[in-house]
């Protein structure tokens, strides 16, 4: 498998199949995320980086013995561990009896959101999701710090019109039709998270995918007019601040951090509002981070073209 392009495409297909498998295991939210993040964005980023890196892998002899030994020991440890596990799908496993029943039974009363995964994600374990948004923000900061592009390369590249995308007439027309729908679908997913699969992450990624499609087809400089890189950087921070801000507001109103009961007079309404705002914060951060990462990768390709 010396052609990295094939490796990346196969890993994309692998994520798609695993997404469908998740669906079969009743994990609808996870399937949606895996499809959009795993198959979508990660394949996209790998292809973008492949453009900068040599596509064909040199046939080098690799050292299988050490790897084989380490892998076998870990495998043995794992197999050893699986022997006493509760059987697949049994209802009386400790996992289903100790903590989970309360989510399923009381969440309708306490939070009033049919999609229990969203209620656990945003309210019961809301702090985990804040941490997770911070992880995405850290990755954004990391990529921004590593792939910095100086001001003057940005100016010079304005004059550079991407020739190859000019005559893709059909693609551009279809894209003109598709992109608004993609963005609208993203917003639908964002606010539909309470009732069906969806939520901040998936919406953010789909929104970013729309914008990335636009950038690929109509060129970086045109899309920079609409989405200036500096404002997007601010948006990555704005999302996390929104999420944290909601938590702080709850503290100021008397509850603990991220306790939405205190947002409104009636606790259930407070939960609704809290979850809505929090999901919006997550959506903004994820969308802007994915966009920024893609912009930084494309700036790098422009920088290479400009230098040659």
């Amino acid at each position: 498998m010396s052609d990295l392009f094939a490796v990346v495409m196969l890993s994309g297909i692998y994520s798609l199949i695993s997404a469908s498998l998740f669906l079969d295991l009743d994990a609808v939210d996870v399937a949606f995320t895996e499809a959009s993040v795993g198959a979508g964005i990660s394949t996209l980023l790998m292809l973008a980086s492949l453009k900068l890196v040599s596509r064909y892998q040199k046939k080098t002899r690799y050292k299988p013995i050490l790897a084989f030994f380490v892998v076998v020991t870990t495998g043995a440890m794992l197999i050893y561990g699986t022997l006493d596990m509760p059987h697949f799908g049994t209802a009386d496993a400790p996992v289903h009896t100790h903590v989970a029943p309360r989510y399923l039974n009381e969440s309708m009363g306490e939070i009033g959101v049919p999609n229990v995964v969203t209620s656990v994600l945003a309210s019961y374990r809301g702090y985990d999701t804040l941490g997770e948004t911070l992880v995405i923000f850290t990755a954004g900061i990391g990529v921004m710090a590593l792939l910095m592009v100086s001001k003057q390369t940005k100016q010079e590249s304005k004059k550079l019109i991407p020739a190859d995308m000019q005559q893709q007439i059909i693609l551009r027309i279809v894209a003109k039709m598709m992109i608004p729908l993609i963005l609208m679908f993203a917003l639908y997913v964002q606010f539909h998270g309470d009732y069906g699969p969806g939520g901040g992450f998936q919406a953010g990624v789909i929104f970013a995918a729309g914008i990335i499609l636009y950038t690929m087809l109509f060129g970086l400089s045109t899309s920079q007019e609409v989405f200036k890189a500096t404002t997007i950087e601010l948006f990555t921070a704005a999302g996390v601040l929104l999420y944290g801000g909601v938590g702080v507001v709850c503290m100021l109103l008397g509850g603990n951090f991220l306790d939405y009961d205190f947002l409104k007079h009636d606790p259930v309404h407070g939960q609704h509002l809290g979850i809505l705002l929090v999901e919006l914060g997550v959506g903004i951060t994820v969308a802007s981070v994915m966009m920024i990462i893609f912009f930084k990768f494309t700036w790098r390709t422009v920088k290479h073209k400009y230098k040659k």
Partner: peptide, 19 residues
Amino acid sequence: HLPILQVIIPLLAAPFCIF
């Protein structure tokens, strides 16, 4: 609120640096 403030202060400060 001291326990959560311990983590929240740097947590919210980091994105604020970008501004």
